[in-house]
Design a protein around this nucleic acid. Structure first.
Lengths: 211, 211
DNA sequence: TTTACTTTCAAACAGTCGTTTGATACGCTT
DNA sequence: AAGCGTATCAAACGACTGTTTGAAAGTAAA
């Protein structure tokens, strides 16, 4: 923003609250997060959340932002690469979005958490983000697998890819205990993405040729 | 139990509490579950949980039971089937354990929930159930993939399979919204297991031959 | 029946939660 | 400087949470 210095104090606290909420929601989930902790990190009063967002629910809705996920799909659709390369690119970008702690896309990490544990915002998340994502990935796999893939095979292959990606996020606490020196740096993330890409392309190729 | 009529009233309330706790924990997670709701379903007093189990944590530890998961691995290891068939059998049994709502193995569904959201019992779960499971699956994949699979490839292939299986449980709320008529009956569960088996065997075969 | 022990119960406790309140301080126009 | 709408604040509210308490009820041996 070039007009950063024009922002009112009110806008600044709003943004501090959103930033803090992204941290706390992504770390503790919606249920586990407390507005007091969010306000403490934002150096704001406890009442600020209700004043600016109408409540904890309103803050969650404001915090969710599907733009990075949309941008990922848009960028992917406009490349000139072949479908198989586009799948590997998608997996690469998606895994980065889910795991990379530096490159803050906490919004998607929050979303990933809420998928398993319904919150007031789950319907919105599914409608605006998850459904389009599944459709996008389905279309991409259709290009790769051709017409020999049944609708059920296509749908389940989408699940297989998303399941592999989400595993690293959802099971992070477990993987850390199994392998304490695990770190999601760029090298590790790229290796994970490459693995899922190869593994899945082989799986799809097999399904497409089998019948 | 043949000595059911011999059980004291105290033992009966203990068992009612455990059964109720399995339901509530598997539906709402450990955080979301309340001892009052558990006691209400068990038709017991609120203080019963503390009297019999020392607290909510103690009840969780008592509720967790890894016997079904161990039995699955033991049965799998003693078949005379080839490694590829054993993998498909494992996936079939594992998916059934995670998804089948009739055949009550709520213990494993509770465990699956807690993997993403650390609770006081996570260390115990990882040590006694998850680590042996990963090792078991790793050994099985080693038999299938041979020596050409690197340790990293082997480990990530284990993650790929578990990730695909867990996806159907962790993303159940989402999948229900995407496809309201989805039901995890035996036909659907068998189809899911067959898909993951084929998909994964192709992926492993590709990794094993690629280098 | 008396005794000693275990189990249940209603009630309350101490703490945290999200939210509300009414007063105070601020930024702005007039 | 006065006035006005906005934003912040400490404090409290009511509704939960897991847990504790002490009395009542039940159980079984002496």
């Amino acid at each position: 923003m070039t007009e950063a210095e024009l922002k009112s104090a009110s806008e600044l606290t709003r943004e501090r609250l959103i930033a803090a909420a992204r941290e706390v929601f992504s770390q503790n989930g919606f249920q586990g997060a407390t507005v007091r902790e969010i306000c403490r990190r934002a150096e704001a009063n406890v009442a600020a959340v209700n004043y600016h967002f109408g409540g904890k629910d309103g803050l969650l809705a404001e915090v969710l932002n599907f733009a990075p996920l949309k941008a990922l799909q848009a960028a992917n659709a406009t490349t000139s690469a072949c479908p198989r390369e586009r799948l590997q690119l998608f997996i690469h970008d998606f895994i980065h979005m889910l795991l990379d702690e530096q490159h803050a896309s906490l919004q998607c990490q929050i979303m990933a958490r809420e998928l398993a544990d319904p919150t007031p915002a789950l319907d919105q998340i599914v409608r605006d983000a998850v459904a389009p994502l599944h459709e996008f990935l389905g279309n991409l796999l259709r290009e790769i697998g051709g017409k020999s893939l049944s609708e059920a095979q296509l749908r389940r292959s989408v699940y297989s890819i998303l399941g592999q990606c989400m595993f690293y996020r959802n099971s992070h606490p477990v993987l850390l205990r199994l392998n304490p020196k695990l770190r999601y740096d760029h090298r590790e993330i790229n290796a994970i993405a490459a693995h899922i890409g190869e593994f899945s392309l082989a799986g799809i190729a097999h399904l497409a040729q089998a019948d």
